[in-house]
Write a protein that binds this DNA or RNA. Sequence first.
DNA 1: CCCAAATGTTAGGAAAGGCTAAATTAATTG
DNA 2: CAATTAATTTAGCCTTTCCTAACATTTGGG
Lengths: 170, 170
Amino acid sequence: MAGAHQDGLSSNLEDYLETIFHLEQESRVARAKDIAERLEVSRASVTGALKTLADKDLINYEPYSYVTLTAQGEKIAREIDRRHHILKGFFRDILQLGNEAAEANACRVEHAMDQAAIDRLVNFLDFLEHCPRTGGDWLESFEGFCRGKASPDNCRQCLADCLERGAELT
Amino acid sequence: MAGAHQDGLSSNLEDYLETIFHLEQESRVARAKDIAERLEVSRASVTGALKTLADKDLINYEPYSYVTLTAQGEKIAREIDRRHHILKGFFRDILQLGNEAAEANACRVEHAMDQAAIDRLVNFLDFLEHCPRTGGDWLESFEGFCRGKASPDNCRQCLADCLERGAELT
DNA sequence: CCCAAATGTTAGGAAAGGCTAAATTAATTG
DNA sequence: CAATTAATTTAGCCTTTCCTAACATTTGGG
C-alpha cells in the first residue's frame, strides 16, 4: 500500500499511466521500451506494471504489442497530467523555482494532493491573476521581496501603480 | 526506493520520526504502542521501523525500552514537522480547505516537496502577509471569488479600501 | 527468405513495509 | 511474590516494485 490515492492507484502506477499518456500523444502509441526509458526502469519492470494496469482495465495490452489507454485509463492519466501542469506552474511562476526544481517537485506532489486541494489551487492561481491587487506586477514585487528589496518607499510606489491600473476597471 | 528524499529516508520512516518527535514533546518519551496507534500500524511493524531508525542512528533504542531521538534524528524530525505546519497553514488559511483536508494533504505533501520549495513557500506566505496589496482583507476577497462574488463593483471598493490602508504606510 | 539485432516476456530474487500468531519480557496487583 | 495482564519482540509470510539473466518474438537488412 505504497500510496492510497483517490483512483486507488499507487504513485508508481500513476506514473506509468502518465508516461503512456505522453507517449500516446507524441507517437499515438506507447512501446514498452520507451516507457522503460522515460521512467528509468528495466523493461521487465514495465511488463509487470502493464499487466497490473491491464488487470484494472486502464490500458489495452496484448503481449508483444503496443499499449494504449482505455477510456478510463485516459481519464485518470489526464487528471494526473493536469495536476502536473498546475503544480509546475505554481512552483515555477509563483514560487519562482527554476524549471528543473519546479518539474521535480511537481512530479512528486502530483501524487500527494487530492482533487479538492488541486481545484482550490486552481482557483487561487486564477484569483492571483484576475484580482487587480495581485495581477500585473505583483509577482515582480514578490521577486524583489525575496531579494530583500522591500522598503516603505517601494511599497508606496507599488501601491500607487496598482491603484492607477485599477482605475481602468471603471 | 519508495521515496528518495534529501535525508535519505522513505516517507514511511519520516512519518515514524515525526511521530516519535510528537510523542517526545507530549510525554518526554515515546512508547512503541503509542507509535503504532498514531500511525495505525501493528506493533510488530513499529519494531521493524525502530530497528531501521536505530541502525541509522536517528533514535536511541534498546529492546523493551523507551525510544528517544538522537540529535540527528531530532533535526530531521523538526524539519518534517516544520514542513507539516507550513503546508497545513497554506492549505487551511490560504487555500481555505477545511481543517481535516488541510491536515491530510499536508501529511502527504510534506514528504514530496524539497527544502528549497518549502523555503520559497515560506517566503511567499510571508510576502502575502506583509505586502499591503495582499495583507488584511485580501484573503476574504479570495473567499468571495471562490463563491463567485467577483464584480467590477466589488473590485473597485476593495481596491479603494486597500489604498486607504496603504496610506498609513507613510 | 532468413538470421541477427531489437524488443518483449519469464523466472527467480532482493528490499521495503505491512500483517498475524506465538514467544518473551515487564508491570501490576491480589 | 507469584500470577495475570500488558507491552514487545520474533518468526514467518504477503505484496509491491524493482532488478538481472535467460528465453521468446518481431523485424529489418542482406
